[in-house]
Design a protein around this nucleic acid. Sequence first.
DNA 1: CGTGACCTTGAAATGTCTCAAGAGTAGTGG
DNA 2: CCACTACTCTTGAGACATTTCAAGGTCACG
Lengths: 232, 232
Amino acid sequence: MAHTQHQHSLTRELACINQVPIFQHLSDEQKVSVAQVTRPVHAAKGETVFAMGEVSQTLYIVNTGQVRLYHLAADGHEQVLRVLNPGDFVGETALFTDEIHASFAAATQTGELCTISRAALTALVKTLPPVALALLQALADRLKTAERQATLLAIPDALPRLAGYLQAISGRQAITLTLPMSKQDLAAYLGMTPESLSRKLRQLAKAGIIETVGRRQIGIIAPEKLAELAPE
Amino acid sequence: MAHTQHQHSLTRELACINQVPIFQHLSDEQKVSVAQVTRPVHAAKGETVFAMGEVSQTLYIVNTGQVRLYHLAADGHEQVLRVLNPGDFVGETALFTDEIHASFAAATQTGELCTISRAALTALVKTLPPVALALLQALADRLKTAERQATLLAIPDALPRLAGYLQAISGRQAITLTLPMSKQDLAAYLGMTPESLSRKLRQLAKAGIIETVGRRQIGIIAPEKLAELAPE
DNA sequence: CGTGACCTTGAAATGTCTCAAGAGTAGTGG
DNA sequence: CCACTACTCTTGAGACATTTCAAGGTCACG
């Protein structure tokens, strides 16, 4: 079925490609060759994109919407691993081995995903050096944030962990930011309980460092003070 | 000085290349072209390879010996980020931006490093697809372990954190393994105090799950019991 | 063989977790 | 459109685990 769709037009595929940073710096004809191996997938809010344990040979790139990656512990507790916004991708290990998904992926907002099979992606990397470089850059970036996250979580005290996180996602600017997940998810992500997170946020607010705007927004008022609390 | 050395022979450079997994699957002539842009560096035990804050445009690959990457906190406390064994590398972000080293690197065992400049590495990725693929695989692997490490550290209780770590480095086998760092470094790496680590190791030993052999060796006796304690 | 660093062990203090209940918010259905 | 409901988030008090702080033991190294 997908085959005939591809014959019709590549507009949907190209729309995918054009949104994604990885393919941003390609020429038009290079984008077409990428589009030919891309399969768009629609994901409605709440829909499961893939489940844990499934075998995959596919790279998923979020075009629009938002996808939440999470673990499901034995006690039914969900642990958010990562939140995929437009341009983010998952499944890069499928490039080399049959990846057994270690997590669930569910859309938190309706949107479009682009999928590329392992074989096609390998071919792209071999024939289009810019794709290889862009992928390397994306992986290097993610590696950096993952390693930062790991060193952050190694801190026993909750306050510097939270401060370090806020500093990282605010870019040390005095901006108002929207949290990428609910506070209970964020708490688990930061290795603490929702109660602790709530208390620490209040503590920062009382110190005049942040202000909470609504339920998912936080205004960074004093980035310098945040930096003092964060490691280094 | 390096220039004339290169003219003499590429034996040292090729020795480097041949040891490194990234370049393993190249043809002989491809290896030569890599060797031509490789600069070997000797690192004596205890020697500093690079310091935090230094600007780098170089990829470092460990050929022989061992290199320890670590943070230096304001209070002088050292936090080990990663231990590089032969085949491991650091500095991949230098591929894209002038990396400001976020850590120190010091040799814990005398050995040889291979260094490749950003420009040369970029050129290699563009001209030799196998290099690009190998780099991608290496980054994907590191990403996987880093993300696993992050989810592990998000657990509040020390015992499952330790169990998860032991499980990861033992490969779920009943083997005797050598710790890659001192126990006080390992404690910081796992987000606990040396005292806690000592107590938890004793606890595992009393339960007949592990045994401590000397100061840096641990024998895994019951991998299944370890898996029960580790998350999932 | 001595010295120093690493590791272990012990007891008290602190911080976070757990458990429980109450507010606020968002989304739903009448 | 409003009220209701369900959920998330907050707040409080007690229990617990880990961190501190301090000292002793053990191993590796010169």
